Simulated assay, not measured.
Amino acid sequence: MSRLLLVLGLLLVLAGLAWPWLSRLPLGRLPGDIHIVRDGVDFYFPLGTCLVLSVLLSLLLWWLRR
């Protein structure tokens, strides 16, 4: 468990350092993402992005457990 937490922490640090490059990826602006702008309200739900990330993480975890 501690090894998993260390690896996840290191991945978060690396993602934070690589944020200028990661922010250029089209994630968050995919078809299926819901963005509603009304009077004084801005609602955003990245449904398409969540689905893509879920599939990618599921495949990665499946590959690591094999």
Rank of each mutant, 00 (worst) to 15 (best):
D42S: 15
L57P: 06
R24V: 05
L30T: 03
S2T: 11
V7D: 01
Y44F: 13
S58C: 09
C50N: 07
P20K: 15
M1L: 09
W21S: 13
S58E: 04
V55T: 08
L47G: 01
I34W: 15
R3T: 10
R3C: 04
L60T: 11
V41L: 15
W63Y: 11
P26F: 11
L25G: 03
T49K: 06
L47F: 08
V7L: 13
C50S: 10
R3N: 09
L11E: 06
V7E: 05
G40D: 12
S54V: 04
L53E: 04
P31A: 12
S54Q: 06
V13Q: 05
V55C: 08
L8T: 09
P26T: 11
S58F: 15
V37Q: 14
W21F: 14
G28R: 08
Y44Q: 03
C50T: 10
L17V: 13
L17F: 11
L47M: 10
F43K: 05
L60S: 04
G48K: 00
L51N: 02
L17K: 06
G48Y: 05
L53Q: 09
V7K: 04
A15T: 06
P26H: 13
L25I: 11
L5K: 04
R24Q: 15
V52K: 04
I34F: 14
P46W: 07
G40I: 02
L10D: 00
G32I: 10
V41P: 00
H35C: 00
F45N: 08
P26L: 01
